[in-house]
Simulated scan of single mutants.
Amino acid sequence: MDAFHEGQRVWVEQQDGTQRAAIFVGEADQASWFGGQPAAYVVYPDTKSGEEVALMRVVPREE
């Protein structure tokens, strides 16, 4: 995956259509390895919590 790099600021699209600011941590290799969709790990600065999300929900953030 060359689209994102560790520490990059990104948006994570939420189920309600909004976007939440996050920091890209890395690719979740396990998801696609076992036949799932590609995923990524992100950290949300506002709550200092992390999450594994579908890569298609991650969008580069320009700030």
Rank of each mutant, 00 (worst) to 15 (best):
W11A: 04
F34C: 06
W11Q: 05
R57M: 10
V42C: 04
G26D: 12
V12M: 08
P38F: 04
R61A: 15
A40G: 06
G26N: 11
G7Y: 06
Q8D: 15
K48S: 07
V58P: 02
S49L: 09
Q19F: 12
Q14L: 11
Q8F: 03
T47W: 01
P60Y: 08
E13V: 15
Y41H: 13
E52A: 13
P38T: 08
Q14T: 07
G35T: 03
D16Y: 09
A3G: 08
T18N: 11
A28I: 02
A28D: 09
G36P: 02
V53S: 02
G35E: 00
F4G: 01
E63P: 13
K48L: 11
A28F: 07
R9E: 09
E13A: 15
A28V: 13
G7M: 08
M56T: 14
V59W: 12
P60M: 11
R20F: 02
Y41T: 03
S49C: 04
S49G: 03
H5L: 01
G36N: 04
P45F: 07
S49H: 05
V12P: 02
E6W: 04
G35V: 06
R57H: 12
Q30K: 14
P38G: 04
V43P: 01
W33H: 07
S49M: 08
V12A: 04
Q19A: 11
W11H: 03
G50E: 10
G50I: 06
V53F: 04
Q8A: 13
Y41K: 05
A40K: 01
W33D: 06
Q8G: 05
P45C: 07
D29F: 05
L55S: 08
A21H: 13
P38A: 10
V25G: 00
D2I: 04
K48R: 12
R9I: 00
F24K: 13
E51W: 03
Q15M: 11
Y41F: 10
F34Q: 11
A54S: 10
A31Q: 11
G7D: 10
F4D: 00
P38Y: 04
T47C: 06
T18R: 15
V25C: 08
T18E: 12
Q37H: 09
A54K: 07
A39Y: 01
E63F: 11
A39S: 13
Q30W: 14
G50V: 03
A54Q: 12
I23Y: 04
Q37V: 07
W11M: 03
E63Q: 12
T47E: 08
G50Y: 08
D2G: 14
R20K: 14
A3F: 12
D29K: 14
V10P: 00
V25T: 03
V12E: 09
I23R: 10
G35H: 04
Y44W: 05
Q14E: 15
Y41N: 03
Q14G: 00
S49N: 07
Q15G: 14
D16K: 08
R61I: 09
E62P: 01
S49F: 00
S49T: 15
E62G: 14
I23P: 01
T18Y: 00
A21L: 12
G17T: 06
D46L: 11
